[in-house]
Design a binder for these strands. Structure first.
Lengths: 207, 207
DNA sequence: TTGAACAGACCGACTAGTTGGTATGTTTGC
DNA sequence: GCAAACATACCAACTAGTCGGTCTGTTCAA
């Protein structure tokens, strides 16, 4: 699988990810990527049809990695306990651990980058982002529905509201984290979400 | 105050804001702004030293408007009631009304744009964003501290945590809102925050 | 075993258009 | 008349993208 060509393609995508994350997509030129990777123009255009193709491949790879990590964490939580609320809390704690232990000083979300430069990209890329984000929330929706079914909430809430809130808190946390240069912000937001869930649903019955 | 020159300067900033919000800063060229405004290059460089200066003036004006609106809403809430919790809820509802009634299909936060293209800008602009965001949260911190002092929270929380959560929920909500093209997302997030505050502090004693 | 045929990976000079920015002149309102 | 406000022509650097060619490894028939 990791032929020579595949290796350079990955190298390009890795560098592009870092550059896009710090300067945005429009702010990153192909020459920037080439300089960073010592890859030549010919090689670049051998692997990518153009800059738009780079954009697409970049976000598609990101989404794949992202959903994989997400699903691994979810499976982890499901293996640890059968109680939906305990699973959710387990998942959130795992996420907090991951974010806090990341040595990246200014991490961020690729979807957010693309969303705030949305008009740069053609509709299919925008749709892909929206779909991925929807897919992401819909997994949360299912989980939260199980929680709501098992634990009558103290206030009327829908699974969708909680799912969107979960995603929004992470996205918002990452922005503050980047702006402040404080790596612990997103963690603290996630803790607050757990607080909210505790107040809504109480303690999980079984550990 | 609104001399002829001031008018074109405002016209440029207005157009630049729209463009930057939809394509990002690096994705917006000076020529784009000129085309949109029918202003000539000479006029542009008469009012702005360069693109970096446009960036600074843009975000400074945004911060000014933003903080003004924020303070107006806060003063409104303080005029309506003297109870800190009731003030906070009043403020959040006013904010929700403002966001929901905005006809802008894909609004967003200029700070978020700049934060995700941060390496485009020099350190002073980045610091300005961080300072403004800090100023924003610190007003929340003071308010939440009053709430905590008056209403013993059901869980141990700091005013800072709640303040950051408030900002994060809005920032995250705006991203989802843009990505989905759904104008009601941020509102719903804010409602969830009010839910959390209700569970933490209960009903305000006085309306 | 060898060498012709082929294919994927890569090179880097080149181009047409765009970029931010400047230099110089003209208009406008007081 | 004078300064702020604006217009126009221009430039050098950079941009994405092209294109003819090379290098390296594999396949396969003789």
């Amino acid at each position: 699988m990791s032929t020579r060509g595949e290796l350079t393609r990955e190298k390009i995508l890795d560098a592009a990810k870092d550059l896009v994350m710090s300067k945005g997509f429009a702010g990153t030129s192909i020459d920037d990527v080439l300089k960073q990777t010592s890859v030549t123009k010919g090689a670049f255009f051998h692997h990518f049809k153009g800059k738009a193709d780079l954009a697409r491949q970049l976000v598609e790879r990101y989404a794949l990695n992202d959903l994989n990590m997400f699903k691994t964490m979810a499976a982890d939580a499901e293996a640890a306990t059968s109680d939906p609320l305990a699973q959710m809390l387990h998942f959130l704690k795992a996420f907090e651990k991951y974010i806090c232990n990341s040595q990246d000083p200014s991490p961020g979300c690729m979807y957010a980058v693309y969303t705030y430069e949305s008009m740069q990209f053609d509709a299919s890329v925008r749709d892909f982002i929206a779909d991925t984000l929807r897919q992401w929330t819909s997994i949360y929706v299912r989980k939260y529905q199980e929680v709501i079914d098992a634990y009558p909430p103290k206030l009327e809430v829908t699974a969708r509201q909680l799912a969107e809130l979960t995603v929004a808190i992470v996205e918002g946390g990452l922005i503050l984290q980047r702006a402040y240069g404080d790596t612990s912000v997103t963690c603290r937001q996630s803790e607050q979400l757990r607080n909210y869930l505790f107040l809504l649903f109480g303690e999980p019955k079984s550990k």
